[in-house]
């Protein structure tokens, strides 16, 4: 089977400036004093992962180990310092839901705005509008500015918009932690639906249960390197034990 995502020798290096240089004057002074020292920080080093089409792939690891950086590289937000990422198909990133919501606008306006951020056409959003609203169950709040929404409500709208298309690859970053349990179940159901339709899913979560339940394979990332990669239940068991 063809690979949906091929990650080859990917490294990501951040320049962590010890002091933030924000102005030309500071920059010149620091340059001549030779104080422009950057601490290099390898967020990821030499990552190799092939994710097959239709697979549900999990990423686990402690905070700051580079999981989210890897997701951002896959979805094209970051360019890796070295190495390459090949993605076959369309991506729907659920990295931070509601990116690009303008809180002064109403939910109705935001559905169009956020939809266009994700690259949908107006025609497509028009078609799917009712379906999106039905999924959020927020009919009566549709024309309320979103600044008056609770974070759970915002997440509902964000999730509904992002999953309305049938992407080839779905990227999910700990977004299921918000919302009430009914909505979480609903989200999981929607993800399961997408999966059964052959969509590749990449999930980051701190909930080991969720990962074990949903994923086929898992990569355990520790300080920017792959520690282990393999069957979900095996890796998750080892990961859970290591914490004890």
């Amino acid at each position: 089977m063809a690979n949906a995502v091929e990650i080859k020798n990917v490294s990501m290096r951040f320049n962590m400036a010890k002091e933030k240089v924000d102005s030309i004057k500071e920059y010149i002074i620091k340059f001549f004093k030779r104080q422009l020292l950057f601490e290099e920080f390898m967020a990821l080093s030499d990552i190799n992962i092939d994710i097959e089409q239709g697979e549900v792939f999990g990423l686990i690891g402690l905070n700051g180990c580079g999981k989210s950086t890897l997701l951002k590289i896959i979805s094209g937000i970051y360019k890796p310092s070295t190495g390459s990422v090949k993605v076959n198909g369309t991506i729907a990133p659920l990295i931070e839901l509601g990116a690009g919501f303008d809180m002064d606008l109403t939910a109705r306006e935001n559905i169009y705005l956020n939809g266009s951020v994700l690259g949908y056409s107006k025609q497509y959003i028009d078609e799917k509008f009712d379906e999106i609203v039905d999924f959020t169950e927020l009919h009566q709040f549709l024309d309320v500015p979103m600044k008056n929404y609770s974070s759970g409500m915002v997440a509902r709208v964000g999730f509904a918009i992002a999953t309305i298309t049938k992407p080839d690859i779905l990227i999910v970053d700990e977004i299921l932690a918000v919302g009430d349990f009914l909505f979480q179940e609903k989200c999981e159901k929607r993800i399961n639906e997408l999966m059964s339709g052959g969509t590749t899913v990449i999930i980051v979560s701190h909930s080991i249960d969720q990962i074990t339940r949903l994923c086929d394979r898992v990569a355990w990332i520790e300080s920017g390197k792959i520690k282990m990669i393999g069957k979900a239940d095996e890796i998750c068991a080892l990961y859970a034990n290591s914490a004890k």
């Binding site: 979805s75 094209g76 937000i77 931070e96 990116a99 690009g100 951020v117 994700l118």
Partner: peptide, 9 residues
């Protein structure tokens, strides 16, 4: 920046 950091555009 908030947008650029979160989605690819």
């Amino acid at each position: 920046s908030q947008l650029i950091k979160k989605v690819y555009i």
